[in-house]
Design a protein around this nucleic acid. Structure first.
Lengths: 125, 125
DNA sequence: CGGAATCCCCCCCGATACTG
DNA sequence: CAGTATCGGGGGGGATTCCG
């Protein structure tokens, strides 16, 4: 164990890295991790707080994250049934990197939209 | 300007954040940014170093990143023609967050595959 | 060399309906 | 409440061909 910080200043890393990145870097996974970093949430809680995700995609993405060991799924034997989703220890190590990316997105959103408008105007000339 | 670090501990940020995230979080954008953080590269240079990307997707993704103001495209009037792609100033601010994510992916790849195997074995029982 | 254009397949994903 | 099942379209993306 203890993969000791794989020295990696650039290139390398063929397809497997990309596989992992597209797993956690897809449209909904980042969102779910972002919505779980305060603590556990239930299915419909996630559904509401994410907004715009279909039941199907929420289920599928949660399954994928669970399969990868990033979140845990706990069934509470209450009535009505209740299921809590929570970041695992490994999942929690994702918080910092994801948070950095989310913060970047928020801070640069306006600038990006400005660039887009400029670019589109230029090519329509 | 100067969006001064948007305080953001969790939720918030509706659809626009997701739009930006899915822009840079798609299959190829992260890869391209990762391959440019050492300096400019040419089209076919990127093609080779990324590996597995089609000409079409490289073109499309580069256009998208250029449109968003994250990379610049410079045509050198040499013979044969030569085109350099390079991170813009805003693009360079992406290096740290992306690098964090890539490092995470590399360091957790083995563990994730182990989790997957375990999960798949469990449900096939 | 660095593209643009066309064709076409696959699968992602939303909508809807049903279950425990 | 928390899912599963099924259908169907839309577009992501590969292969190929042609251009400057």
């Amino acid at each position: 164990m203890s993969p000791e910080h794989t020295q990696h200043t650039g290139e390398t890393c063929p397809a497997s890295k990309r596989e992992i990145l597209s797993r956690i870097g897809d449209k909904w996974s980042l969102e779910i991790v972002g919505n779980l970093w305060h603590g556990p949430k239930r299915f419909n809680e996630l559904m509401r707080s994410i907004g715009g995700i279909s039941q199907r995609m929420l289920t599928l993405t949660l399954r994928g994250l669970e399969r990868d060991g990033l979140i845990s799924r706990t069934i509470l034997p209450t009535r009505p049934p209740r299921v809590d989703y929570e970041l695992t220890e490994m999942g929690k190590t994702l918080i910092d990197p994801v948070h950095a990316l989310v913060t970047w997105a928020i801070n640069n959103e306006a600038r990006i939209h400005a660039c887009r408008a400029k670019f589109d105007a230029a090519e329509n000339s």
